[in-house]
Simulated scan of single mutants.
Amino acid sequence: MNFLTFNTHSWLENNDQQQVEVLAQKILKEDISIIALQEVNQKTTSKEIQVDHYFQLNNEQQSIHEDNFAYCVVNRLRDLGTNYYWSWAFNHIGYDKYHEGVAILSKTPFQAEVIKISLEDDPADYHTRKALLGKSESLCFLSGHFSWWSQSSGFAYEWRKVEGRLWDEKLPLIIMGDFNNPANQRDQGRDLVLASQLNLQDSFEVATEKVGEGTIPGGIDGWKKNAQSLRIDYIFLAQEFLVEKYQIVFDNISDLQISDHYGVLIKTSLK
């Protein structure tokens, strides 16, 4: 099984359609089982559409617009001969003009659930965060875009909400997304995840083969003062998984860079 997480920064790059095309071609080439996307945008003013049965309704379903980035990627995949099931959860207003959210694409059907993880609940406040949970017959997977480190109202609070929701899940877990917590900052976000009783492993740390590491190249939105490559996007997995390969993608090395983040692609098998 192959998994991908990617903060798309959608509709904020120079070539919108190139974003869609490069991502769709990569999904097809690598035969990716489940894709977790963040900063999946649609304009607040664009036209609402009716979705088909490949869209997996969730418990807090917001309207889907014709320019929803995940919808555009799924449509392009369909043009290329492959259908993906998908869902999208609205988080907050981004850049004053987008409904910003998170999405999941899957080769197989799944049940979709939105989990409110932030202390805030105002869509006009960018601190408002919701994660998207998917459950298939054999896996439980999540796409999230978390806040920066804070013990009280930021990442620590949000992680505990996720942890509480997933505590009694019996299926193997895959938790993916933009965690906004660098791997080199000890006693903060990554360490909190690995200390969880969910008993997760960091795919980078356990991969047999590693190609690349950092997921942002330097100063980007939210990390303006950063001058070095950081690993802030993660795929955490249950102990049942073996990680054969961890690879950074969309980094102008393996693939064209199409976002201010790089993607993380892993190849796995179950023990």
Rank of each mutant, 00 (worst) to 15 (best):
L4G: 07
T5A: 06
T5N: 09
F6H: 09
T8L: 13
H9V: 03
W11N: 11
W11V: 03
N14K: 15
N14D: 15
N14Q: 15
Q18M: 09
E21L: 07
E21G: 08
D31A: 15
A36P: 13
S46I: 04
E48C: 11
Q50K: 15
Y54R: 10
L57C: 10
L57M: 11
E60S: 10
E66Q: 15
A70C: 15
C72H: 14
V74W: 06
N75A: 09
N75V: 07
R76G: 00
D79G: 12
D79F: 14
L80T: 04
L80W: 14
T82D: 10
W86E: 01
W88R: 06
F90K: 05
V102Y: 01
K107V: 04
T108S: 13
F110R: 02
Q111A: 14
V114L: 08
I115V: 14
K116P: 03
K116W: 00
S118D: 01
L119C: 10
L119D: 12
T128E: 05
A131H: 03
L132I: 09
L132S: 11
L132T: 05
G134Q: 08
K135I: 06
S136W: 04
E137T: 01
L139T: 10
L142M: 14
S147I: 00
S153A: 11
G154L: 14
A156F: 10
Y157A: 07
E158S: 11
W159Y: 12
R165P: 06
A183T: 02
D191T: 06
L194E: 01
A195R: 07
Q197H: 14
L198V: 10
L198D: 13
N199M: 11
L200W: 08
S203P: 08
E205G: 02
E205F: 03
V206A: 08
T208P: 08
G212D: 02
E213V: 07
T215C: 04
I216D: 00
P217S: 11
W223N: 14
N226T: 01
A227I: 10
L230M: 05
F236Y: 15
A238M: 12
E240Q: 12
F250Y: 12
F250Q: 03
N252T: 08
I253G: 07
D255A: 08
S259C: 02
Y262Q: 07
G263Y: 05
I266Y: 01
